[in-house]
Design a protein around this nucleic acid. Structure first.
Lengths: 196, 196
DNA sequence: AAGATAAGTGAATGTTCATTCATTTAAAAT
DNA sequence: ATTTTAAATGAATGAACATTCACTTATCTT
């Protein structure tokens, strides 16, 4: 039998992500996507059940790649400041170096499709972060708080700054460019907030 | 001449917001919107040039209403902790009480249309916040930082928690319900981060 | 009460949409 | 070399799309 061209799948997903960032979910059509990926519309349906399935698989792939990356070099047994700094810098580097990927993942969470995104993500990453946080609290390195409060204080400011940077404007619509200095200062503020 | 029924505009915009939150931007069609708002599709085009114009006007209306609300009872001459606490609580109340409005405004910022959102917002709000921050820094109540870093540290954690609450899940997909206790703790952490 | 005007409409327009299907193509298996 | 199998396709399908248009309706002005 003829063999699957796996690179087609990658191309289709890459083009889909890039189109969504450029023209939005409502600008993405299967025919335009097929053209951009140099395949027939029918080919897309070999690999994806329908449009929703394509988007859900794309989201899953992006999350998997992102998590695999940010948990490199991270060990939950690290001391709190070290571990958080590594996590922060990994996340910052990934979404600054791959602005479309970060933008897509965030955009997707506001979509109704996000409710259907299966919890098939490898739980090892979540478990690792839970362990890291609980251990830091037990060791007196981190104020006692829920995982959600921790995550929000630790990472939401970072994602927000990078988003300002990507769109080139701040909350008021003024031009904005992110600097390393700002990132480091924000990390320092976050550490200050979280340390007892 | 026949008089404009201004309530029609409100109904159309309200239904549009609610549809977008429920079915996404790609699920919103002018015909379905017309049906939901109990008007003819042609009526929508009396008030809005086209679909994009409708969405842009909706975003503007939501932002205007939001800013008018959160700057009530706020005075940039307040001391830093008081002013930030008022801002924080106003924002929290608004987006928790009006989850669709908050969701729509945030979702919209990820949309390509956001780049076209005119800077017609009343600058008095931005000016007020700038004055508040600069004065707090000058008074030694706030670490020296850019407006963007301030905003990200101060408010991004709040918006993130409320978003978890709205979708009912945290970053790992586990069920999540926001409590007042968490909100207050997060505010305290943010204040700790920002105060010298 | 009549006329003027703009609000409001239902049906129609041509386009684009997601998806399918009959057919062709490439490569593995024999 | 031939057969088998699934990948891959271009064209087609009917539904849904944004928008328009000829027309009706309500209300203000006179």
């Amino acid at each position: 039998m003829r063999v699957r061209d796996e690179s087609k799948i990658e191309t289709i997903l890459d083009e889909a992500r890039s189109m969504i960032v450029k023209v939005g979910f409502d600008g993405l059509s299967m025919q335009k996507l097929a053209k951009a990926a140099n395949v027939s519309p029918a080919t897309i349906y070999i690999y994806f059940k329908d449009r929703d399935d394509l988007l859900l698989q794309l989201y899953k792939r992006e999350c998997d790649q992102f998590f695999a990356y940010i948990f490199q070099d991270f060990d939950p047994e690290m001391d709190f400041a070290t571990g958080l700094t590594i996590q922060w810098k990994k996340r910052a580097k990934y979404i600054i170096d791959n602005p479309d990927k970060g933008h897509f993942m965030e955009h997707f969470t506001f979509t109704p499709l996000h409710a259907q995104a299966k919890r098939t993500r490898d739980p090892k990453y979540t478990d690792s972060m839970k362990r890291f946080v609980q251990k830091a609290i037990a060791n007196g390195e981190l104020v006692k708080m829920s995982l959600e409060v921790y995550w929000s204080v630790a990472f939401a400011p970072l994602y927000n700054l990078v988003r300002f940077h990507k769109i080139g404007r701040n909350m008021a619509g003024d031009p904005f460019v992110l600097t390393d200095e700002m990132l480091l200062q924000t990390l320092a503020l976050v550490l200050k907030a979280l340390k007892p």
